[in-house]
């Protein structure tokens, strides 16, 4: 109960700040519209208004404040505008419609999931290699770190262009960009997890004359599970970012990234914001789902109480 109250309080604070921020952000546009509609605006000349600060304008023209929350194309849409747009583009649209957020969300989600699976698989394989081979430890790890210092927004167009020239397009390039972002946290987490058994645990297996593969399956792998799940939660969020970024440079027609891009072409800020929220909600659901799987698995393993 206490938690719910705390969460709602924070939420209410954000909404209030948001509504307040809409006033200075949108007041100039609103006053121009009001003036055209024939209302008395202070000061009357558009040139004078341009030099005034937004808060002063809002105080001088208090009657226009409600209109800052109802603009067609606001600089900053009000929360309820975003909420209504989201409602209309999810529940009230058929999911086959090109304007349905669920349709676009699914396009992005499928690339995210494919990328996440590729990235996780690659991450685990690299981690196993790094833990078992000193050569790989020395050679792969620095490259993995360097790979994450390149801005993905710069790399994504290259990946798409190169893959397109060899005839690969559609979901695969997006999934690869997505995998590129998600493999790293998995490598780092799994290396740490696979190395988590202490010297005593390793000595114990040595007294049994256990082979390396027995040590891996019976000790290292189970010991790494809590680390793996933590990495997966970071990795899946990174995957979603990767998939959205992968939709931007191609001028893709579908996906949350395409929705963001189209919104910015046509100044549809409400559409941009609802796509942003759709992405955030999607990420929250994915992380939440992984958290649920984590609890179930660790509980069945006996590692969570």
């Amino acid at each position: 109960m206490k938690q719910i109250v705390a969460v709602l309080t924070v939420l209410a604070a954000i909404v209030i700040v948001w509504y307040a921020a809409c006033i200075p952000m949108n007041i100039k546009g609103v006053l121009t519209e009001q003036e055209r509609a024939g209302a008395e605006v202070q000061p009357p000349s558009a040139k004078d208004r341009r030099d005034m600060d937004e808060i002063g304008l809002a105080l001088n023209n208090a009657f226009a404040i409600p209109a800052t929350w109802e603009q067609e194309r606001p600089r900053l849409p009000a929360p309820h505008q975003v909420a209504i747009e989201m409602w209309e583009t999810t529940v009230q649209k058929k999911i086959t419609s090109k304007r349905s957020l669920i349709y676009h969300g699914w396009v992005t989600l499928s690339a995210t999931m494919l990328g996440f699976v590729i990235g996780t698989g690659l991450g685990i394989l690299l981690a196993v290699g790094i833990v078992h081979s000193r050569v790989m430890d020395l050679s792969v790890m620095p490259w993995a770190i360097v790979s994450q210092t390149i801005p993905i927004i710069a790399l994504a167009p290259m990946i798409i262009v190169v893959l397109y020239s060899v005839g690969v397009q559609g979901i695969i390039p997006k999934a690869i960009i997505s995998a590129y972002l998600s493999f790293f946290p998995v490598v780092v987490g799994m290396v740490k997890g696979l190395r988590s058994p202490d010297a005593m645990q390793l000595d114990l297996l040595r007294t049994y004359n256990a082979s390396r593969s027995q040590g891996f399956w019976k000790l290292r792998l189970p010991a790494s599970m809590p680390y793996l799940f933590t990495s997966l939660k970071i990795g899946v969020a990174a995957s979603l970012v990767g998939a959205i970024v992968g939709e931007l440079p191609t001028g893709a027609v579908a996906g949350l990234g395409a929705r963001l891009l189209a919104g910015s072409y046509y100044g549809q800020t409400v559409q941009i914001w609802s796509a942003l929220f759709a992405a955030a909600i999607l990420a929250a659901c994915l992380v939440g789902l992984l958290g649920l799987i984590e609890r179930t698995v660790l509980k069945r393993m006996g590692m969570a109480q």
């Binding site: 000595d203 004359n209 000790l219 189970p222 006996g302």
Partner: peptide, 21 residues
């Protein structure tokens, strides 16, 4: 002797695997 599993070794800490009964 180790390869022939001639001894059992008990460490200072029990070192039981938390994921095994």
């Amino acid at each position: 002797a180790r390869r022939n599993r001639a001894y059992g070794y008990v460490f200072q800490a029990a070192g039981l695997y938390p994921w095994r009964t």
